[in-house]
Design a protein around this nucleic acid. Structure first.
Lengths: 347, 347
DNA sequence: GAATCAAACGTAAACGCTTACGAAGCAAGA
DNA sequence: TCTTGCTTCGTAAGCGTTTACGTTTGATTC
């Protein structure tokens, strides 16, 4: 069916090897035959059989990327960034969603390992490190995206999550919030990091760091709008009531805002809300949402470049940790104009 | 590095063939040896080399899917639906975004054709049919998703777009709109179909079908919120002003609503707005958006199943056309409670 | 004019797997 | 005893490519 090297070789009266070499311009081949080959290749619309090549070279030219979900623009944008790095390189990106399910994630990783992808990118929902040990055994280099693990010396691309938490918390303080709550939870590194940044900042500013101001979810998949709604309903019952909420992500913040409004209170006057991720349509929301931008495109782009380096290197490289600086994007949900502290840039 | 059939065969004192057959349980192999093989395979954590298998069988167990973009939840949900069909089948889905660019789309398709994917799914941004001829030449079955082409007898999964247009337009009429505008344009089949449904419905209801009520964009990539904003600004200048806008998609509707509000008018009282696609967070918007749901998950799911049928069949099947019924989801942006016609179900 | 060398091309083998066919063993029917 | 047939396994070949190493040719050197 498809044109093979053999077809071209026969057609030109040379050996298969000559054609093969000409295509990857080996120094072995004369300019003249090289030209003849390339011409015929174009005419016959030859496409190398990548499976055959993979078999002999041991490289598939496939990159695997397992993300927790694709419905929000957050990971979609990271995927987009990775793709942009791969554009024109001949590498194909295989993206799989784990649907926030650690078991599905393992299956997806298994699939990609079985496919012998050259590099694996994972934004993991995993509790333990065991899965990655298996990837290591398979000899496949991998890069953690957005979420890292203590005790796992691996490549990582993401943001400084303590800084994320600090930015958000400090901003809420700046607009006059005195009791700042936080909705997060679960063991993921960004959750932990942001919580740290939140606590540290509260301490630094001498604001109350009351445990009951922190709402912790059990599992990752609960980090969505309905959780944000329920959590906020509970937080609003506290005495005294929190006047600012820092949410682990934007979806939670959507729910939080709804809950505040449903309680007959106003955003940002009674309660200011800040999310993380800076999703695509935050500015069209009921109350446009202030959010910590994590430079998703950049994360993806850098990760893609690192992935290419790892394949080119051909041998394990010492773990790199690429951290991007988060940026606060102020919108109505926190824009109280009652600044008590020096302000940060807005957008 | 990795365990091969040969390793297992040597280990068990049988031939490679026997192991191979046992794994795909051929009738050729006795229950006993089959059991021995499977046991050892598990112990040694053997994973077949899919590249090698692809080379000899000519099937890669890869499905390709080219989408226009992944940032909105629309295509992400379709991807999710496809994945759900593939779950546990051993097929891997390769999703690529064309970023609404016909050239990039061609490149992406070329890549996937070169990879010899077993089936190709495409939600195309193409003007012409030429690209698909090349896919046909390569002998790769393909399925059009969401967008079809007249004169291209191909498998298709999507909604009845005339019905989409009719649903939206009829609804706007039902809530009392007398001058209904439409924002769409470009040559894509859904655009054309919805416009048809819109016009037909206006005619049926004896409402004015004024050409100046229709805003046509030139190119696909313009079908976004900024276009919606600009288009609506112009539409609002008409005399008499339109009191309802049916938008080709939700992103356009976001912009439309913003423009109406910025003009000092109210939604839905002065201008009711309806979008299409029913994106994930429509209900959290400034004005929760009424939208025609296109059953994205279902589209993906059906497409995945059809794709599997096509591979299993191994030969070209007569083109199937799977049409899902669109459903109107009424929210605040059109909820005027001033019904003049019998109402449709709401959500 | 024999030895040396670089340039240009080819041979052999392998990557890991499957498909088609053949062979060995044993039981049953003639 | 010989054929027939079934079960169970193995042999041979090939999928399309690359890598390592040969071979040929003509030019260069002394």
């Amino acid at each position: 069916m498809a044109v093979t090297l053999k077809d071209i070789a026969r057609d030109l009266g040379v050996s298969v090897i000559t054609v093969s070499k000409a295509l990857r311009d080996h120094s072995d081949i004369s300019q003249e035959t090289k030209a003849r080959v390339l011409k015929r290749v174009k005419e016959m619309n030859y496409r190398p059989n990548l499976a055959a090549r993979a078999l002999v070279t041991g490289r598939t030219n496939l990159l695997g990327f397992v993300v927790p979900e694709l419905l929000h623009s957050f990971f979609s944008e990271i995927v987009r960034g990775v793709s942009s790095s791969l554009q024109g390189t001949g590498y194909t990106l295989v993206t799989t969603s784990s649907e926030q399910d650690p078991k599905l994630e393992k299956q997806a990783v298994d699939q990609l390992v079985a496919r012998r992808v050259d590099v694996l990118l994972v934004a993991s929902t995993q509790w333990t490190v065991e899965m990655f040990r298996r990837v290591e055994e398979a000899g496949i280099p991998y890069i953690l995206i957005d979420r890292s693990f203590t005790g796992l010396a691996a490549h990582f691309v993401g943001v400084n999550d303590e800084e994320v938490g600090a930015l958000a918390t400090r901003h809420l303080a700046e607009v006059g919030c005195k009791r700042i709550a936080h909705i997060g939870g679960g063991g993921l590194s960004p959750v932990v990091g942001r919580m740290e940044g939140y606590k540290r900042t509260l301490a630094k500013l001498n604001l109350p760091s009351d445990p009951e101001l922190i709402y912790n979810v059990e599992r990752v998949e609960e980090l969505g709008d309905s959780t944000g709604y329920e959590a906020t309903k509970k937080l609003l019952k506290l005495e005294p009531r929190p006047d600012g909420i820092f949410c682990y992500n934007d979806a939670i913040a959507f729910g939080a805002i709804s809950a505040v409004l449903d309680a007959g209170l106003s955003v940002p006057e009674d309660v200011a809300v800040v999310g993380c991720g800076n999703l695509l349509y935050n500015r069209f929301l009921k109350i446009p949402l202030t959010s910590v931008d994590q430079q998703t495109m950049q994360i993806g782009h850098k990760a893609g470049q690192l992935a290419l380096q790892l394949v080119e290197a051909g041998e394990p490289l010492p773990p790199r940790r690429i951290l991007l600086e988060p940026k606060l994007v102020v919108r109505q949900s926190s824009d109280r104009k009652t600044s008590t502290l020096p302000r940060v840039a807005r957008a």
